Every structure is written in C-alpha cells, then in structure tokens.
Simulated assay, not measured.
Amino acid sequence: MGRTRKGRAISGFVIVDKPAGITSTSVVNKIRWTMQAQKAGHAGTLDPAATGLLAVALGEATKVLPYVTDALKAYEFTVRWGQETTTDDAEGAATRSSDLRPSDAQIEAALPAFRGDIMQVPPAFSAVKVEGERAYDLARDGEVLDLAARPLFVQKLELTGRADPDHAVFEMVCGKGGYVRSIARDLGRSLGCLGHVTQLRRIWSGPFSLHGAVAWPEIEAVGQGEALDARLLPLETALVGLPECRCPEASVALLRNGGAAMVFPADGLQWGDEAWASREGRAIAVGVYESGTLRPTRVFAA
C-alpha cells in the first residue's frame, strides 16, 4: 500500500521575486510550508546573491518544470572591471587585478563573440557535478577544478548602462545552463581588464515575468494556510510553447491512465510533434501526436 503524502493537493506556479541572501531551495521550502503543498520544486537555480524571478512549482506543476527550465531567460547584471574573484562575483576573494578600463566602444566590439551558440566554462563555485560531487563543494575544499566547457545559446547580450569607468550594466537573454558569472569573467578576460559580477537579477523566464511576482516580505508576513492561493498560476501557463490539442470526454480517462487516445489537433501539428491535450482548458496530458491520437509521456491528475 502506497504512502499517503501529507499536505494539500494543490497545483500551479507561484512566481517569487527572490531577494539576495537566501538560496533558491530555501524559497521553495518556505513556499511549500506556507501553502502546505504536498510537493514543490523550482525552475532554474538563482545564486544566493542574485535576485529576481524564481518560478516555484507545486503539485502537478512539477511535471512541467522542464518546459520552463529549458526556455529562454533574461537577466540584468552589473560587471565590475579590474578584478577577478574565486567565485566570479563579489562574494569571492580577489585572485587577479588590472588597472585597465575598457571604453564603451571596446565593450561593444567584444560582445558579438558572446552571442549565438558559444562554449562556456562554468564557474568553479557552481552546482555542476564532478564525479558525483557538486563543484562548489570541491572548490570550498580547496580543489583546483578543470571544468569542461559547455554549449550555451545567447540570444541577446547588450550593454545598457555605464555609471562609471569601473562598472558596466548588461542585459542578456540565454538558454538553459547559462552562467552570467562566466560571461562577466570571460568578457573581462577578452577585454584584458578582468571582471566579476556585482549585481544579478533575473527579469523573466519562459512564460513568466516579474509582473505580479510575490515579494519576499509578503511571503514572510503570512502563516500556513490559503493566504497565497490567489497568487497561484495554473500549470498550463508553462505549456504555452507547445501546441494544444482538444480532447473529447471519452479520451480523458484513457490519457490519464497512460494510454493513447483520440484528440483534435491544433493547426499545423505533424506526426511526432510534442503537444498537450486539454479538456475545458485543463491539461490532461503531454505527449507525442500520432495521426489523430496523443501518446502521453506526462499525465496530470484531475
């Protein structure tokens, strides 16, 4: 007999404007405790020092987290020139310094090399796994890591501000697995002046933006219960990038039991495309479309 989960069977997303100084896991745990949810997770870790959008999934919404994690994300960040650090941000100790300061024109000329499909070496202090262990744990123990470069798609990287010669503000839109700290480090090296991140804020992620996000003081001000239920977004929000198929009532039970069933396809849907099936606006399943039917790969409870 299976173990019954404790908590409320609620599903959806709570979009949190994470403050600096707390971990993404702490945010998830706080939301789960506050809303008494049976299950919770998040889409894309933010460093403790970073702020901005963190999409917290509850219940059945945890099944669609990959569609948010894999989506494009946008960041605003500030780079301080003239110094590299162990962590590639202001939290770490300085390792190298330079008196050089780039001009706006020099920065603009360097940016194209960081756009499109690039290879990026993660920071030593990152969640990348090395032989089963997190890189940041090894780095804290004093190990010198030689992390492999990883592919990253950068759709946009623009210089947006310059308060003084020591600092530059950027906006970046990138795909899954991007490290802003690595961009700052590598851009500083390419300019010969070195650099690290001093401020980082995620402003949108896939279908979610900071508009209407729940501020941390609001979360801290409420106890356990239903106070945040009105801020819950439906799990279907994460599926906006997939074609939607309508399904008849007779198909609902079949799909939820993991069987292929008839659907009414969206325009232009082709054999083998990934799509999601809905009934009266509610997601029933995500799966592979096969000539009038959907073969489910993820199903959602009623």
Score class of each variant (00 low, 15 high):
Gly2Trp: 10
Arg3Asp: 04
Arg5Val: 01
Lys6Asn: 05
Arg8Trp: 10
Ser11Arg: 05
Phe13Pro: 12
Phe13His: 11
Lys18Asn: 12
Pro19Ile: 13
Ala20Cys: 13
Gly21Thr: 13
Thr23Gln: 11
Ser26Phe: 09
Asn29Val: 01
Thr34Asn: 08
Met35Val: 13
Ala37Trp: 07
Gly41Asn: 09
Thr45Leu: 07
Ala49Tyr: 15
Thr51Ser: 15
Leu54Arg: 07
Leu54Phe: 10
Ala55Lys: 05
Val64Ser: 11
Pro66Val: 03
Asp70Trp: 00
Asp70Leu: 05
Ala71Met: 04
Glu76Gln: 13
Glu76Thr: 11
Phe77Trp: 07
Phe77Met: 11
Thr78Trp: 01
Trp81Lys: 12
Gly82Lys: 12
Glu84Trp: 02
Ala90Phe: 14
Glu91Phe: 10
Glu91Gly: 01
Ala93Arg: 15
Arg96Asn: 11
Ser98Gly: 06
Arg101Asp: 09
Ala105Gly: 01
Ala105Trp: 00
Glu108Gln: 13
Leu111Pro: 01
Ala113Leu: 05
Phe114Val: 00
Gly116Ser: 08
Ile118Gly: 01
Ile118Tyr: 02
Phe125Lys: 02
Val130Asp: 03
Glu131Lys: 15
Gly132Trp: 03
Glu133Arg: 15
Asp137Glu: 14
Asp137His: 15
Ala139Trp: 12
Asp141Ile: 00
Asp146Gln: 14
Arg150Phe: 02
Leu152Phe: 05
Phe153Lys: 15
Gln155Lys: 15
Glu158Ala: 14
Thr160Asn: 00
Ala163Asn: 10
Ala163Met: 06
Pro165Gly: 08
Phe170Asp: 02
Phe170His: 06
Glu171Gln: 14
Val173Met: 10
Val173Lys: 11
Cys174Arg: 05
Gly175Met: 08
Gly175Pro: 03
Lys176Thr: 02
Gly177Thr: 12
Arg181Trp: 02
Ile183Asn: 04
Asp186Gly: 04
Asp186Tyr: 07
Asp186Glu: 08
Leu187Ile: 13
Gly188Ser: 03
Ser190Cys: 00
Leu191Ser: 07
His196Val: 06
His196Cys: 06
Thr198Cys: 11
Gln199Leu: 12
Ser205Pro: 05
Phe208Asn: 09
Ser209Ala: 06
Ser209Gly: 15
Leu210Asn: 08
His211Tyr: 00
Gly212Trp: 06
Val214Tyr: 10
Trp216Val: 07
Trp216Gly: 09
Pro217Ser: 11
Val222Asn: 11
Gly225Asn: 10
Glu226His: 14
Ala227His: 15
Ala230Pro: 04
Ala230Phe: 12
Leu232Phe: 07
Leu235His: 05
Glu236Ser: 14
Glu236Ala: 15
Ala238Trp: 08
Val240Cys: 06
Cys247Gln: 00
Glu249Ile: 07
Ala250Ile: 05
Ala250Asn: 03
Val252Lys: 12
Ala253Arg: 15
Ala253Lys: 15
Arg256Gln: 14
Gly258Pro: 05
Gly258His: 02
Ala260Gln: 12
Asp267Gln: 15
Gly268Ala: 12
Leu269His: 09
Gln270Lys: 14
Asp273Ile: 04
Asp273Gln: 13
Arg279Glu: 01
Arg279Leu: 08
Gly281Asp: 09
Ile284Leu: 13
Ala285Leu: 06
Ala285Tyr: 03
Val286Leu: 07
Gly287Glu: 03
Val288Tyr: 02
Tyr289Leu: 04
Tyr289Cys: 05
Glu290Ser: 13
Leu294Met: 09
